[in-house]
Design a protein around this nucleic acid. Sequence first.
RNA 1: GCCAGCGUAGCUCAGAUGGCAGAGCAACUGAUUUGUAAUCAGUAGGUCGUGGGUUCGAUUCCCUCCGCUGGCUCCA
Length: 638
Amino acid sequence: MISLKVKDLSPVELEENHIVARDALKQLKVKNVNQVVAVRINGTLCDLSTQIDTDAEIEPVYIASEEGEKILRHSIAHVMALAVRELFEDAKVTIGPAIENGFYYDFDYRRSFKEEDLPVIEKRMKEIIKKDMSFVRKEVSSEEAIEFFESQGETYKVELIKDIGEDQVSLYTVGNFTDLCKGPHIPSTGMIKAFHLTKVAGAYWRGDEKRPMLSRIYGIAFCDKKRLKQHIIKLEEAKKRNHTILGPKLGLFSTYEEVGAGMIVWHPKGAMLRHILEQFEIKEHLKRGYELVKGPEILKTELWKKSGHFDNYRDNMYFTTIDEQSYGIKPMNCLAHMLIYSSATRSYRDLPKRYFELGTVHRHERSGVLHGLLRVREFTQDDAHIICTPEQLNQEIKGVLTFVKDVMGIFKFEYSLEISTRPVKSIGTDEDWELATNALIRAMNDLGLSYDINEGDGAFYGPKIDVKLKDVLDREWQCATIQCDFTLPEKFGLVYIDKDNQRHRPVMIHRVILGAIERFIGILIEHYNGAFPVWLAPVQVKVLTVTGRNIAYAKEILQQLLDSGIRVQGDLRNEKLGLKIREAQLEKVPYMLIIGDRETSEHRVTPRQRDGKNLEPMTPEAFADIVLQKTKLMTQEV
RNA sequence: GCCAGCGUAGCUCAGAUGGCAGAGCAACUGAUUUGUAAUCAGUAGGUCGUGGGUUCGAUUCCCUCCGCUGGCUCCA
């Protein structure tokens, strides 16, 4: 006799000594059992076919839940593998997990899969689903599993089992396809209602580019057709917000095949947007005790050798020769800042030094990774190096984290934080790395911030805190970063004289707030869907005349607004007002000023907001005050 | 760099088993002086991304390179 209980309900005593989970749910009168994909038995996720033979608390996992959908997606990956193995006989299977919104499976086949293969595979999958085939779990010894997969020629699976290193592994069979898998899975393929194969991609086995390139097939999947459709609509909406489309359309920037990959050409409105951000940054940095500095674009290769960049970052650098001397184009701004520090004897009283530079850097990124403004080869960082005593480190890191919070708050950005630890290719002693890593962790804890740890993803010279923002497709991009560096001060022999009249080694923080102006603007465009708030809008106001009789007065208004520092343009063409409004609307200008005969005779302006609302006619001065006030306060709304 | 897809007028896109390349919007010209998201008419605009090959003939088929997109890897 066993006692079973569903969360929040009273226990039920059973006559039997064992029962299959699915039957238990029925006996316990759990609702909609046909919508349940798996169960939690005493907290452990299990298949519906699991036999229960002890007292247990069980909890149904419904297909529409986050967990249930994940199980569903993973199961669809298996169905895809079955379809692929049926269609492409000697295709080897590797791994196929559930991911956000869907799943993928990596195959090793004599050719890579093409997009035209997808409808064929999808059709076969639908046939399998129609047959409502069961997922059958079996636990076997690792030796047995290895023997089985070897007989199937599934060498990748054999490698996986050996790496798992357990005595027992579980296998799942659907149709004639048996896969190594922890599970759980949906009971049978009939539960699959909504999926679509979306794209193919190459992917290295185990993410290692020295290993074979596999062929990956991606799919999206949801518990029902409605959710799938919603997701597709969402993707279409996202596409419209995409900065690579919106940016050129709004006259912000463009790229040219003849200029080169990863190089951005800024048009007037984009250059203005950059300028606004840069002025904002200079102001915010000066407020926080930073000093403006500026280093050259190219520095002698010897200096890059001294800093360690030549050994560790050479592949990403461009070099040139001038008068038989080798120079490196800077991929980072730190070198000049080091030299500025060491140009004088520094006292502990001088520290911390905070050097800030809007520094343009060049990095040779691999061609395949370039993407719009988010990944380019030339970009400008809002870069600063803080040189301080070890005792000041914690305070300085907290200062930067607060700076980041303040700035992200102005833009109303949500962001995630990550601490990255020592990578394989790196310099410095273990003690320094530990000290620096702990300093970062302590600062985060002091401020009560939550973060993830990203093992082995630090810079070659030190650990770092990364601040990540999402683009319109929910891809995360690193923007702000705070990096500790104990090695550069040493390489450059930086010292300060402490109270004890002895020379001591300062520590350094590399940090950016927006990150790269280019990337940040890319994210900004998507964040605001191109409709920038007044303080950021490259054109804040457009003056629209109704007829030619209003041109003289409109010009007066234009000049008056320009004089008061407002970014204003006129549309004085001989066109209908409706057209002018439409065009200004498509340019996403925050304010339009309608200038007709009434406004001209009363010496007023009628503002129309971007949201379509008209304000009451007012004096030009009153309107200028509104715009200037919003600019000053950096408000979010129009 | 690797895998897959794509590249036709300023933009969005048609098009042909290889035989003089098409539309809408934008541009230009003229008319219209107009009150809250497109006034009308006309004109002009393309070595079909680059270079090579196959062919009587290539924008179309093949190769190379350039660029873009989505992944892998790498990073702000």
